[in-house]
Design a protein around this nucleic acid. Structure first.
Length: 575
DNA sequence: GCCGTTTTCGGCCCGACTGTTTTCAGTCG
């Protein structure tokens, strides 16, 4: 799958064109095309195979960029990109990562001082050679010098689950400030994107300046980048950027819409408003000077002739058209989840006992919990050896007796898919378990054909129910497996088996785009946390968020079913 | 470079903040 590679090339081209002072709309066209590629569910190769018309049907892809995509797929490079790279020194792209340095500043520094890397930028700033350049005063020099250190962390995106707790804690502090009427975390966090670049707080208040002045002094804030009448930008210790945006309480709804984005979704909404003779901004929906909406988000969408669109759908990936056509999906909610279908106990590499897990699940109101310890050959995770399998089953039964089956522990395992696709326990052992997950934890670099064959073989084993964290990717650590996912999804569908959406924060696997593709094919999903300790059970929120981004409703989620219905399904899969 | 119940050419979302400017350019979200 070349989507990410081509997206990166288009993004670089956008940055280089901006540096060269090209038409900003042309720059934006490349950046939008990059986003289209990055968000595309299907492999771009598959789209291209259907012909140039199919490529041009993608948003922000026209004849020129379609040809460049074809060129890359045929030759492995794009000549126009190479030509730009000859005109723009390599290090300019990293200089552009420094907050406060945009294309104009980078060009000026290159033309006048030969700045072509973070090192030469540092030298130019520290030596004071920048003084006298147009627009460069002492404040700006010091400001950029400070921001140099942020070039790496500021541009970096972090797993959603790694910042969610921090964001919620900060939200409590924001809400506690005098003068704050309402506050919410918006941005990609509210949309449940798998990674977030910053935290965006919306604050309704009558006294914005006072509130912002107090907020930028909260503990944990390392650096104040900017603070004005309506907005402030700070960096937390650790480098995470936080934006505080205030609106009057009467503009709460339009503020939520504005700050939640995505950018592409908002741009399309504003264009839609224009066509109706309206204007949409963070303060409301306007016809001339008359404000038609803004109090709440529902009203904002209603004024544009649309039903409210849930944040996880707001990516300009068909949701506005679906809303116009009355075809928005009814999304699954966290409240509908009746149990967790992958957790680990002390029998393998988990920290909690079976009883502790059952008690924690009871607190969450779950009806059931699948305990799925690793199988024997995953030594690093202390996979349960064959001679311990029966003892483990016995303890599961004991806990169920002790708790009266509330919640009911399902005896399960996360079974290794070996290199050839065979499974890590004999069939008799697998048949003795109520739920069997299969998962890849090794041999990540097989060829696409071999990997596909291996996964299909595992899936086809008659005792298997669920393919766990199918792509085996780890955010920021390991890429997705190379495999023919469409083929795997089709086979799973035919076999009546389920795919997992693993909400563990650095897995988030299936990823939203693949889950949406599989969902469109009618597949069934199992949501899980892959918990290895009690507080990991909270990651169900991330699994549900991912399912929502995949447009999935409760009927497609296995663990919205009652225990009886789930047990029926588990038995039926085995025929 | 893309796109079309405004347009196949001429548009392209809208506003805030900073530092420098004395009315604005650049950057950012």
């Amino acid at each position: 799958m070349k989507n990410a590679e081509i997206a990166r090339i288009f993004q670089e081209m956008a940055e280089m064109l901006a540096f060269l002072g090209e038409n900003p709309f042309r720059v934006r066209a490349y950046a939008q095309a990059a986003r289209t590629l990055a968000d595309l569910e299907a492999p771009i190769e598959a789209v291209a195979a259907q012909g140039t018309e199919a490529l041009e049907a993608l948003p922000a892809i026209g004849p020129d960029l379609a040809a460049k995509i074809q060129e890359y797929l045929h030759t492995g490079a794009i000549q126009a990109h190479a030509r730009l790279a000859q005109q723009v020194p390599q290090g300019i792209l990293e200089v552009l990562r420094v907050p406060g340095v945009g294309p104009k500043t980078a060009k000026l520094l290159w033309d006048r001082l030969g700045v072509n890397s973070l090192e030469t930028l540092q030298a130019a700033l520290a030596s004071g050679r920048v003084r006298g350049l147009p627009g460069f005063g002492e404040k700006k020099r010091r400001h950029l010098l400070e921001n140099l250190a942020l070039a790496e962390t500021a541009a970096q995106r972090r797993p959603l689950g790694a910042v969610l707790g921090q964001a919620r804690a900060l939200l409590e502090q924001v809400r506690a400030q005098p003068g704050v009427v309402q506050a919410e975390v918006c941005g990609s966090l509210r949309r449940y994107r798998e990674t977030v670049g910053d935290l965006d707080f919306l604050i309704a208040t009558e006294k914005p300046a006072e509130v912002l002045a107090a907020l930028v002094r909260l503990p944990g804030i390392a650096d104040v980048e900017a603070v004005g009448e309506n907005r402030a930008t700070v960096f937390l210790q650790g480098g995470l950027q936080v934006d505080f945006k205030t609106v009057p309480p009467a503009a709460w709804g339009s503020g939520l819409q504005y700050l939640t984005g995505s950018k592409a979704h908002s741009i399309k909404l504003r264009t839609l408003a224009q066509k109706q003779g309206l204007k949409l901004n963070e303060y409301g929906v306007w016809r001339g000077k008359a404000r038609l909406a803004g109090e709440d988000e529902e009203g904002v969408y209603r004024a544009l002739g649309l039903p409210w669109i849930p944040p996880p759908l707001r990516e300009d990936s068909g949701e506005i058209e679906a809303a116009q056509g009355g075809r928005l999906p009814r999304l699954v909610t966290l409240q509908e989840i009746r149990g967790d279908l992958q957790v680990h106990s002390r029998w393998s590499d988990g920290k909690a006992s079976l009883l502790e897990l059952a008690q924690a699940a009871a607190k969450l109101g779950y009806e059931y919990l699948a305990v799925t310890d690793h199988s024997q050959s995953l030594k690093v995770a202390h996979g349960v050896p064959l001679d311990k399998v029966q003892a483990r089953l016995k303890e599961i039964r004991q806990v169920n007796e002790q708790t009266g089956g509330k919640p009911y522990l399902l005896a399960g395992a996360e079974v290794e898919v070996l290199a050839d696709g065979s499974l890590d326990y004999p069939e008799k052992v697998l048949r003795g378990l109520e739920v069997v997950l299969v998962a890849v934890h090794s041999h990540f670099h097989l060829s696409r054909a071999q990997q596909t064959k291996r996964i299909l073989r595992a899936l086809e084993h008659p005792a298997v129910h669920i393919l766990a964290h199918p792509t085996a990717r780890m955010l920021g650590v390991r890429k997705e497996l190379e495999a023919d996912w469409e083929k795997i999804f089709r086979r799973a569908q035919a076999l009546g088996k389920a795919l997992e959406i693993d909400g563990y924060y650095d897995r988030m696997d299936l990823p939203d785009t693949l889950a949406r593709q599989a969902g469109g094919m009618g597949l069934l999903f199992s949501l899980s946390t892959d918990a290895h300790q009690l507080d990991h059970l909270r990651f169900m929120e991330l699994a549900v968020g991912t399912a929502q981004r995949a447009w999935l409703g409760p009927q497609q989620i296995l663990n919205t079913r009652s225990l009886a219905a789930l047990l029926d399904w588990l038995r039926a899969v085995r025929g």
